[in-house]
Amino acid sequence: MNNEHSADDHPHHDISKHVRRYMGVFLALLLGTVVTVAASYIPFKSNEVNIAVALAIATVKATLVAAIFMHLSAERWTIYRFLIITVVFAIGLFSLTALAFSDHIHR
């Protein structure tokens, strides 16, 4: 997290250096998709393992998109602050589904 530099600050000649990184991310995303599909056909011990593997790969792919394509790896602190607050609320939202487990009457 850098408060001094953001993607906006890069002079034009620096952008051309980023292009190779974009190509690397693109290839990683394609490969990640192939691995996700292939892994879903592997009969792991339980379906929960398949779910965990697929979501782990999806998280890596999403991180690459956010960090490199969306320039979050070098963004201003203001943006990080927005996202931290959002993630806290999103986790709270997802946690609400856990309340289903406390419904002892219908389970």
Binding site: S40, N50, A54, I57, A58
Partner: peptide, 11 residues
């Protein structure tokens, strides 16, 4: 879509 694809099509 990166999350939608596995949860709907694969899992």
């Amino acid at each position: 879509w990166i999350f939608l694809f596995p949860v709907l099509y694969l899992l």
